[in-house]
Simulated assay, not measured.
Amino acid sequence: MIKKKPVSVKGLVFDMDGLLLDSEKVVKRSWDYAGKELGYENFGDHIYNTVGFNLKRRTEYFKTNVDLDFPMDRFAQMTREYYYKIADKEGIAVKKGAPELLNAAKSHGCMIGLATSSRQIHAEQSLKRAGLYDYFDGKVFGDTVKEGKPSPEIYLKACKSIGIEPEDAVALEDAPSGAISAHAAGMRVIVVPDLVQPPEEVKQFLWKQAEDLERVIEMIWG
Rank of each mutant, 00 (worst) to 15 (best):
Gly11Tyr: 00
Leu12Cys: 14
Phe14Gln: 08
Met16Cys: 15
Glu24Asp: 10
Lys25His: 14
Lys25Gly: 15
Val26Asp: 00
Lys28Cys: 13
Lys28His: 11
Lys28Asp: 03
Arg29Phe: 05
Ser30Gly: 09
Ala34Pro: 12
Ala34Ser: 15
Lys36Cys: 06
Lys36Glu: 15
Glu37His: 15
Leu38Ser: 14
Gly39His: 08
Tyr48Val: 14
Tyr48Trp: 04
Phe53Lys: 05
Lys56Phe: 08
Arg58Val: 02
Glu60His: 08
Asn65Val: 02
Asp67Phe: 08
Met72Cys: 14
Phe75Glu: 07
Gln77Val: 15
Thr79Ile: 08
Arg80Met: 05
Tyr82Glu: 05
Tyr82Leu: 06
Lys85Gln: 13
Ala87Leu: 02
Ile92Arg: 12
Ala93Pro: 10
Lys96Gly: 03
Ala98Met: 02
Asn103Thr: 11
Asn103Phe: 05
Ala105Gln: 07
Gly109Glu: 05
Ile112Met: 03
Ile112Glu: 06
Ala115Arg: 02
Thr116Arg: 10
Thr116Cys: 10
Ile121Gly: 03
Ile121Glu: 13
His122Tyr: 12
Ala123Asp: 04
Gly131Trp: 02
Leu132Gln: 10
Tyr135Gln: 01
Val140Phe: 00
Val140Glu: 00
Gly142Ile: 00
Gly142Arg: 00
Gly142Val: 00
Thr144Ser: 04
Val145Pro: 00
Lys146Val: 10
Gly148Pro: 01
Pro152Glu: 01
Ile154Val: 13
Lys157Phe: 03
Ala158Glu: 06
Gly163Tyr: 01
Ile164Ser: 04
Glu167Gln: 03
Asp168Asn: 03
Ala171Cys: 09
Ala171His: 07
Glu173Arg: 12
Gly178Asp: 12
Gly178Cys: 11
Ile180Met: 06
Ala185Phe: 01
Ile190Glu: 06
Gln197Cys: 07
Pro199Lys: 06
Glu200Gly: 11
Glu201Tyr: 12
Val202Asp: 00
Val202Arg: 06
Lys203Arg: 13
Phe205Pro: 04
Lys208Gly: 12
Glu214Cys: 04
Ile217Arg: 07
Trp221Asp: 11
Trp221Met: 06
